Amino acid sequence: MTPTPTPPGLARLNALEETAALAALRAVCASTAWARRLLAARPYATPEDLYAAGDAATAGLSAGDLAEAMAGHPPIGRPAPGDPASAREQRGMAGASAALRAEMLELNLAYQEKFGHVFLICATGRTGEQMRDALEERIGNPPEREREIARTELGRINRIRLARLVEED
């Protein structure tokens, strides 16, 4: 059986010099500790090895590292200017009504005031209404529970971004 060729993006990540690889990984997740952990485990034989390392690194983030990772995400409904990843991921808000946008702004501010960080959700494939409903539901969580939900959502986002990195030509 012929081995599957390494996807071009994975081969490139494995071959990048350290500073460039760290920058590529920090574009996936803003946590320096997360990126350094993935950097230290190179080279990756398969995308699955990379995803498993990403999952383990996300699970191992300290509270401070998790806060650093979340700080790299713009609020839902306000993708970072010039950031195609956040615009693509938040596409579900693109056609949202003015009323839904205003509601999301109000809920986002209340969430940030309560928890001290941005509302983090894997927005890919979700509608604006689904994101609003999730925000309304999660704002009632205790801080410890919400931090673990945010960690899970961060892991989903990181996997999607790693897959995009691996598949890039």
Rank of each mutant, 00 (worst) to 15 (best):
G9K: 04
E146N: 04
P79T: 10
Y51P: 01
E89S: 14
G54H: 01
R156S: 11
A94F: 11
R145Q: 11
E17T: 08
T32Y: 00
L162E: 05
E129D: 15
P43V: 00
R147A: 15
Y44A: 07
M1K: 05
N108A: 12
R36H: 11
L10W: 10
T46L: 04
V118S: 05
A24I: 05
A24C: 02
E89K: 14
S62M: 08
D65A: 12
A53C: 12
V166W: 05
P8K: 06
P8C: 08
P7D: 06
L100F: 08
P143L: 00
A15R: 07
R147V: 07
E113D: 12
L105M: 10
P5N: 11
K114S: 04
L100V: 14
E168H: 10
R147Q: 14
L135M: 14
T19N: 07
Q112M: 05
A11N: 01
C122G: 00
I121W: 04
R26H: 02
L22R: 12
A21W: 05
A85V: 13
E146A: 03
C122Y: 00
G72C: 09
D65E: 13
C29P: 10
I76F: 14
A30G: 11
A110S: 13
P79Q: 10
G128T: 01
R78Y: 05
G95I: 00
M93C: 15
E113L: 07
A134K: 01
A53Y: 13
A96P: 02
G116D: 05
G54K: 01
E153A: 09
Q90G: 14
T32V: 02
L10R: 08
P81R: 14
A98L: 11
A33P: 03
A24R: 08
A24G: 09
E48D: 15
M93W: 12
R145V: 13
G9H: 10
E144D: 13
R42A: 07
L105D: 15
W34S: 02
R145T: 13
A56M: 08
